[in-house]
Structure formats: C-alpha cells, structure tokens
C-alpha cells in the first residue's frame, strides 16, 4: 500500500524504491480519473525512465572515453624512447577516438544514425478481453 498526498503516485518515493527493488519493467495502471492522478503518475514515470536512460548513456560515454584514454596512456609509457610529440599524440589520438565513438553511441541511441521504431506493444492500450 502506497500513500500519497499529491496526484502522482511517485510523489511518494517509496513507490520508485519498491519498483527498483523488485526489478519491475512493465507497469499497468488501473485508476479512476485518467486526467488527474493517472496522468500525473504516467508523466512522472516517463520522467523517471528518461532520467535513468540519460544516466545510463552518460555512464556509457564516460566509460568509453576512459577506456580509450587508458589505452593512450599505456601506449605513452610503452614508447619511452619516442619523441615527446609522438608520445603526446599517443594519448591524444586514442582519447579523440574515444570521444568520437562515444558520440556515435549517443547518436545511435538517440536515433540520429538510423530510425528507431517504438515496438507496437509499448504503444498499445490494454483492452480488456470479452468486452
């Protein structure tokens, strides 16, 4: 039982914690006022999902950049006898590649590189059987 004092059910943070602890991925709604509490709850749910998605993308991007930069530093230390300019490039180039790869990842997730189609099951409204 979740108690709330605002229209949205997610105004009580216990609900989000409950869903996360139970690894809930699909949420159905049964309510009285579609234009009121149900609407507010759905809007908050979308906000939560988008926040999680953005946080996931940021972590992915930082991870990719860190990986390439790490490889650059490894090359830097393995090429002690090379000229300094070449060694600096050994860091800069992998780092730049990491940034480019990260951008490509973000663009692909954002649907810039290729069109994304929202699955029909996500757009479908649940219809009660035999009614």
């Amino acid at each position: 039982m979740i108690a709330k004092a605002s229209p949205s059910a997610f105004s009580n943070p216990e609900l989000e914690q409950y869903f996360r602890s139970h690894d809930v991925q699909y949420i159905y709604m049964v309510g009285v006022f579609a234009e009121g509490c149900v609407r507010s709850t759905v809007i908050d749910l979308v906000d939560l999902a988008l926040s999680s998605c953005i946080a996931f993308q940021l972590v992915s991007v930082l991870g990719v950049v860190a990986l390439f930069t790490h490889l650059g530093f490894a090359a830097y230390w393995h090429a002690q006898s090379s000229p300094r300019v070449a060694r600096v490039l050994m860091i800069d180039l992998p780092s730049a590649v990491g940034v480019v790869v990260s951008l490509l990842i973000v663009m692909s997730l954002a649907g810039v590189l290729f069109s994304l189609e929202v699955p029909t099951q996500y757009k479908a409204t649940y219809v009660l059987p035999n009614r």
Binding site: V24, Y26, Y28, V30, V32, F33, V38, T41
Partner: peptide, 17 residues
C-alpha cells in the same frame, strides 16, 4: 520474463462510492 506491476490508483470510497 520481465517483471510487471499494476498500480491500483485511488480505489477509495471517496471516488467510487
């Protein structure tokens, strides 16, 4: 299979009775 939940919102006497 992905877990799912169903929110039963405001099924109170105030709104239904």
């Amino acid at each position: 299979m992905p877990k799912s939940a169903v929110l039963l919102m405001d099924l109170q006497r105030d709104f239904l009775n």
